[in-house]
Amino acid sequence: MKNKDVIQVKKLDFNIDTLNILSQVSLSVSKNEFVGLVGPNGSGKSTLLKNIYRHYTPSSGMIYLNGKDVFKMKSKEVAQQMAIVAQENQPDFDFSVREMVIMGRYSRKKMFEQDDQTDFEVVSQALSMVGMQGTEERSFLSLSGGEKQRIYLAMAFAQESELIILDEPTNHLDIGYQLYIMEIMRQFQDKTIFTSVHDMNLAARYCDRIIMLKDGRIIANGSPEEVLTVERIREVFHVDTEIEKKKEYLRITYLGWI
């Protein structure tokens, strides 16, 4: 059972100085699961993900990637198994789309190894997955915000990793793009997705499982129906809701702040 867990987090604590941001977080994400992380601003969603993808170092606790201590792995080894799409700052220098996306191939290349036909094919495939086929030679800086985010997504696909972590990549994008990205992710039956989600309707619709954080602790972990209840949303978000099940999805209507 253990080796089916792609991510395993055990008793993770993360403090900044004396401030406790995450406490005793334990969770696991299994192969081919689509798991959403929800919670109010400041609940520690992004901090948790950043610990998993090694941007932060935990104060205590363990994080395993496919059974290995992630902090003892080599950078390239991690990147072969885990791709990250986060909200990125724009570069100040102008690269072409191809030059950007091919960065995703880095963990598969040896020093001095030239980019070969396989790499170019993976790049163009990744671009078609995000609906940006044929844009290889365009300048990255000339793209719109949503297009840029799609290029970052293609970069992650080009990594050909089993696990993709999405750290609020869609926050500043309009609802069309948010749905679009979730749709693309949903299509990958053979990938494991762990994503933070703001919109609970999106979470309910796309996630197999939802983990809810509040004040740095996991307060619920289960199917959308188990996690997203009127009482819990009121308690955690201070929002009154009506929740009904239409077709196979939950539908959440926000009634107002309390």
């Binding site: 993808y53 090694r54 941007h55 080599k74 950078s75 390239k76 080894e77 991690v78 990147a79 072969q80 791709a83 990250i84 986060a86 990125e88 700052n89 570069p91 220098f93 690269f95 950007m100 960065m103 995703g104 880095y106 963990s107 970052y152 970069m155 992650a156 990594q159």
Partner: peptide, 14 residues
């Protein structure tokens, strides 16, 4: 040059 976070995410030992 694209960004240190991107570099790290794609596997560069920054």
């Amino acid at each position: 040059l694209i960004g240190e976070d991107i570099a790290r995410n794609t596997g560069v030992n920054t």
